[in-house]
Design a protein around this nucleic acid. Structure first.
Lengths: 183, 183
DNA sequence: AAGGGGCATTAACTTAGGTTAATTAGGGGC
DNA sequence: GCCCCTAATTAACCTAAGTTAATGCCCCTT
């Protein structure tokens, strides 16, 4: 992860990419629109969300300082992003066209390794999430998130957490009540 | 995908890797054990399964001819595989130590691209599965799998499909009844 | 043709999440 | 301090999935 940040840092410098500021509620990129940039989050917190035709919202992920936001589908396959990216906290962000990242990494082959490694890290995270949806109950997913990501847990609303866990805010409230009763 | 198969094909030839035969029920690799090989499936059908301490089984994926089976965690991060691989149909398989794949791809830098591309394909598949668990009901996942993967749908038991969709076989049977009634 | 084994279906009951709406709690602004 | 706005909780009811077990179906064997 660190090596990838190094790479991005170099790209940003060479291209004089500015640091952008966003407020809570601002949109970094939209659902259904091609977004060929990666967003390097220097500070703040964002969420990736799917909005269904019926208006229902689901949270794919939370990303915070030092994370990289973006849509794989857009960046790699040049398709519209299936999800949007919303700011939760005020954010400082560097937006980097993926073409620039690629361009530079073509010239320096050892950076392929860095890119590959980053993909592997991403994949490992996705494996974990897949496992949790397949094998764990909502209650177990809640406990796991609370203990595994305390720094994010503290910074999001309960409604947002519920939509990340794949349940409704009402259900999450009930789970908490249940846990309190047991303990 | 095709370019990755080319790469694997070369590795197999150069190392005289034999084609292995498995019967239904055979285990390609175990859960909880380090498995540093990739399994190139020439023919047949396998499933990747999590077995929980209480005996409950969940199906992570089905892989068939031309797919590559293996555990990312084991192959990349040298950890025990969190899941096992079981044969469903008789299989012809070439087992390839990942170290050999790496070794050879070190010498031919353009293969880094192939490797990266393969990871991206994998990630795209995982994104889709994540989306389905987060945003779709079991019933919708069933319909999506049936129409999206008819060639696999035909070859697995209903129980296996249910455990892949994240529900019990009884629930899947009910879903089918429900759908028949509606149509 | 009869029996047996393995799945799938059905049934009956329990549990937990979805939905909608009312209520409560907490924080910020004035 | 009071009001308002928002978020969280609670309630009541509905629906769907989990669980266990019985039944039915199909195919294979003998």
């Amino acid at each position: 992860m660190d090596k990838y940040q190094q790479l991005l840092s170099n790209v940003a410098e060479r291209n004089n990419l500015p640091t952008l500021s966003y407020k809570p509620g601002d949109i970094l990129f939209h659902q259904g629109v091609l977004e060929p940039r990666l967003f390097w989050i220097k500070s703040g917190l964002v969420k990736l969300v799917f909005i269904q035709p019926d208006g229902k919202e689901f949270v794919k992920a939370f990303l915070a300082e030092n994370d990289i936001s973006g849509s794989l589908m857009s960046v790699i396959f040049e398709k519209p992003s299936p999800y949007a990216c919303y700011c939760i906290e005020p954010c400082e962000v560097i937006a980097m066209p993926y073409s620039k990242v690629r361009e530079w990494s073509e010239k320096t082959p050892q950076l392929k390794d860095v890119e590959l490694e980053y993909m592997q890290q991403l994949t490992a995270r996705k494996e974990e999430r897949e496992y949790q949806f397949l094998c764990l109950t909502p209650e177990e997913r809640y406990k796991s998130f609370k203990s595994g990501y305390p720094h994010i847990f503290k910074r999001i609303s309960q409604a947002e957490l519920a939509l990340f866990l794949g349940i409704t805010p009402v259900a999450l409230s009930r789970i908490k009540t249940r846990l309190k009763a047991t303990a």
